[in-house]
Nucleic acid binder design. Sequence first.
DNA 1: TGCCAGGCCTGTC
DNA 2: GACAGGCATGGC
Length: 300
Amino acid sequence: MTRRINAPDVNLAATLECGQAFRWSGADDGWFTGVVGREVWRLRQDGDGVLWERSADRDVRPPVAAGMPLPLKRYLSLDRSLREIVATFPDEPALQAAVRRHWGLRVLRQEPWETLASFIASSTKQIVQIRQIVELLARRFGEVVGRGRPPGCPPARGDSAHPAVALYHAFPSASVIARATLPELLACKLGFRAKYLLAAARAVDTGRLDLGALRRMELGRAREELLKLAGVGDKIANCTLLFGCGQDAAFPVDVWMQRALRRVKRRRDFGPYAGWAQQYLFFDERTRRRQPLPDTGAQG
DNA sequence: TGCCAGGCCTGTC
DNA sequence: GACAGGCATGGC
């Protein structure tokens, strides 16, 4: 069943494709398909709203006891006013231009373990490769939570190169990864990051690291907790805190942000929503490298 | 073929 | 504290 939620000030494509989440894929018909928690979601921009469907699966029934999916509004941060958030940004031309160009981009509220694991896998990897690693981990270790037609695949196509039915897997929990072997993780193309992911999973599984607590901690202290993990530096810690722990002021700086910040004069303080500002600058930097964009206009 | 990728760790100075 | 090299792997 397709439902609709009113969602002013949301740019679904920018939000799902700006590099903060790795399990969404878009199709030519405008629908995005992704696994959130233990459900498959399909989302589509519909003017000032979002059309959405949950897994229309009949063969495999998603477990409902543990890991209930985050509600859509919360996942997309629709319970917050983008205008109020943007109003806290500094009056910096490059940032304001990025906001105009990608108006509606929102920082997602993702599950913290999946976020941490994904960004541990991200080290010196291109986004397309990160998506591949995350997918391999889900297929190898995650439970099947749905099946359906792959995005962009015509309904009645039966040849093996374009299977008519795709399986969707939940991202595996920390306790599942903690029981994996290094060779199994290496098979997911993690390379030298495999040992970091395994150690992080064990830290979470044993309770040595309480990811849930990071949400309530002061940002600096939360970052210190994550930095105790091998393979987690400032960048990965900040990504985890921003995208997975609701720490809106966390400010990841990677090679793209270093480029973007060269165009920003005032870089001292981006305010309580620095992470949101960062994401606008990051996405703007990436898209402008691909195709020069006009300086004005909200949603092209 | 070679460069580089949403980094981080370690050794060296 | 700053810096270089190494680490696995694949897209372009």
